[in-house]
Amino acid sequence: MKDMRYIRAASVTEVTDCLKKYGDKAKILAGGQSLVPLLRQRLARPGLLIDISRVADLKFIRKTKNTLKIGALTTHRQLETDPLIREHLPILADMEKQLASVQIRNLGTLGGNLCHADPAGDVAPALMALGAKLKLISATGARTMSVENFFKDFFETAIRPDEVLAEIDIPLLPDLGHAIYIKHSSRGVDTAIIGVGTFILKDHDTDTCKEIRLCVGAVGPVPIRAKNAEAVIRGKVVTGKTIAEAGKKAREEISPVSDLQGSAEYKKELIEVFIQRALKAASSGRRK
């Protein structure tokens, strides 16, 4: 039988040194909420587990002038309940409430969730809408990448075998900016059939949309932006008419993939409905 070894890392340097040495034979263990069942079902069989859960340097929520910096080991539950998050990025606290169960939120981490890259994950479309950036560290240095570029395929990311995700940087919402995440799932605490993260910024004087991001999860291998739909809204006043048109555009531009939660045909219908709902809620300023 194949032996699996275990290292409990104490510092980021220790993690990156280990990764440098073992590369893709090693697997990082953060909260374990996605990885442990994979190990159990023998779907993942790494030679080495690097347990990073005790690395204190990866646990923080800090506000800077323009951003919130969140350590990769921040748990879902911390995001849900942290006063800084609630004040500045309520979209994340709201998103977390609909994510899995309290037991899983207690241990599951933001970084672990992103690196697991479940195409139906809730975190990614919300962070994409916020324009978050990820800081990846390796023994040779650090690099930054937008969340949008991070996901490559089903359960696949741009992270290199020698890198660890250390930090998520989220720009603070500008004064007239609104961000929401809405989700459709059969029982309310389920994997998303569709999830839409939305950010919208309106001009104070003209009420036209200055900036918009519409990010759709659970419709394909990776969360994607509905760019044609965004184009309909950008630079215009958001009205029932533009919302309807954006919904149609999104439906045209996205070819969803069937999964266990819903067929491609059904997701297609939902794209239109949920883009519209997201736009309606975000533009009316409701921070859902």
Binding site: R8, G32, V102, Q103, I104, L107
Partner: peptide, 12 residues
Amino acid sequence: MAIKSCLVLALQ
């Protein structure tokens, strides 16, 4: 904290 003990490695 409530946790699911099947989702946590003993060493964690």
